[in-house]
């Protein structure tokens, strides 16, 4: 019981440390270094791209259904977002399509 509590504290502590460290390092009244400002502009899109790959990393393209539910749902989200420009709609629509494909079409 006590061990488990300590382990949770360690997980929470390390996670918070990782999140806070850059802010502590570049805190204070000083101007934020140009390089860090620049990273703030360019990193988000790269990270979001990375997270997409991360989410789809376990997709199996070599056996049936060859990643088709994922491919169709991804294309659906991209097209819906491009046409309607509404993130909520894209996310809900894309998820619904994927669930239908998985549960009814490619079961």
């Amino acid at each position: 019981m006590k061990t488990e509590a300590i382990l949770i504290i360690i997980m929470a502590g390390v996670t918070a440390l990782l999140r806070f460290l850059p802010f502590l390092f570049f805190s204070g009244k000083r101007e934020t270094p140009k390089y860090i400002v620049y990273l703030g502009e360019v990193l988000p899109q790269a990270i979001i791209g990375m997270l997409i790959v991360y989410c789809l990393r376990l997709t199996d393209f070599t056996t049936k259904p060859f990643g088709l539910p994922e491919i169709i749902a991804v294309v659906f989200v991209v097209v819906l977002q491009a046409v309607k420009r509404n993130s909520l709609l894209s996310v809900l629509g894309g998820t619904a399509v994927y669930m239908l494909l998985l549960q009814l079409v490619f079961k």
């Binding site: 502009e41 997409i52 989410c55 894209s90 894309g94 998820t95």
Partner: peptide
């Protein structure tokens, strides 16, 4: 898949806005 969709929708939106496509 809703998680994946969040990232894809955001990625697409920024792409359309031509916001840092190189980074993407």
């Amino acid at each position: 898949f809703s998680m994946t969709a969040i990232f894809i929708a955001s990625f697409t939106e920024e792409w359309i806005k031509k916001n840092n496509r190189k980074g993407a």
